[in-house]
């Protein structure tokens, strides 16, 4: 059930659609311009959601990303240029999450924080900010090594896309996405545990 309001709201839709069309036509500047727009929208969505719901609530990126898609692109548009949107959205989401993780990390180290209840489920289920920051570094290494795998991880993890959606967005086969994901996941996990060993 889609909120009728969300469907009818399409502020900036034409903007984004125009950019998507241009990006689809190969305009690299257009796809670069897309990112701040999407970033802004995601930030605004997250902020407004938090403001409404308070800190006690958590959101999965997939909800935010799809919400942003509905708002900026709408449901009626063609699927052709969708890919650029989700790449932008995943990149934006990644930035947002990493920024927040850094903030939290700083807070923790700085001790500028009141006692946190351990039973707080939101914290218990959420990857620790340290994990996220370590993942960010590992992912950068993966991207250097194999950009496509980096994109698969970004779309799947940060935008919460399914394998099928990821395949559509990247224009590759489903099998490729699955393989990339399996390998990247194992590789990244190993990188992360290696980092654990380094640290201490």
């Amino acid at each position: 059930m889609v909120d009728a309001d969300a469907n009818s709201r399409g502020g900036g839709r034409s903007d984004v659609t125009r950019l998507l069309d241009a990006a689809g036509a190969g305009d690299a500047r257009a796809s670069a311009e897309l990112l701040p727009l999407v970033y802004e929208e995601l930030q605004a969505l997250a902020r407004s959601f938090m403001a409404k719901e308070g800190a006690a609530h958590t959101l999965q990126p997939t909800a935010l990303v799809h919400e942003a898609y509905l708002r900026l692109v709408g449901d009626g548009s063609t699927w052709d240029n969708r890919g650029h949107f989700f790449v932008a959205a995943a990149t934006a989401m990644r930035r947002i999450l990493i920024d927040r993780a850094r903030q939290r990390h700083r807070l923790k180290r700085g001790g500028n924080r009141r006692r946190v209840e351990l039973a707080d489920a939101a914290l218990a289920t959420e990857p620790e900010s340290e994990d996220l920051l370590a993942l960010e570094q590992a992912l950068a290494r993966l991207e250097a090594k194999d950009p496509r795998k980096g994109q698969v991880v970004m779309l799947r993890y940060f935008a919460g896309l399914s394998n099928e959606e990821t395949a559509t967005v990247l224009g590759v086969s489903l099998a490729t996405v699955k393989n990339d994901w399996a390998f990247a996941r194992a590789w990244l996990h190993r990188e992360l545990s290696a980092d654990d060993g380094d640290g201490a």
């Binding site: 006690a56 958590t58 959101l59 990126p61 927040r100 924080r113 707080d120 996220l132 993890y157």
Partner: peptide
């Protein structure tokens, strides 16, 4: 390995709430 960072979707959270 069953559970890694990548297997838990990242969550956007507000400030952690304090006691």
């Amino acid at each position: 390995r069953a559970e890694g960072v990548l297997d838990r979707p990242p969550l956007v959270v507000g400030a952690p709430f304090a006691s």
